[in-house]
Amino acid sequence: MKNRLKVLRAEHNYTQAKLAELLDVSRQTVNAIEKGKFDPSLPLAFKAARLFNLSIEEIFQDE
C-alpha cells in the first residue's frame, strides 16, 4: 500500500516523533508506515485522516 504520510508530515512541519505522539504510536511505526514496510490498521488510518483533515483514500492508496 502506498501512502502520502511523509509528504503530509513535511507539509505540516512535523517530525516523525511529533507525528508519532499525535497518533499515539511509536516513532518506529511512523517510519515503517512511511517506508511502506507496514500497513496501518483501519483505526490508525482513520486517526491519521482525522489529524490531516483528509479522507483515508487521500492518504493511503492501494497499489
Binding site: 499515539d24 504510536v25 511509536s26 518506529q28 511505526t29 515503517a32 507496514f38 496501518p40 490498521s41 490508525l44
Partner: peptide, 8 residues
C-alpha cells in the same frame, strides 16, 4: 500498551 507494529 504497545502499538500495533510493536505487537506484531
Amino acid at each position: 500498551g504497545m502499538d500495533e507494529l510493536q505487537q506484531r
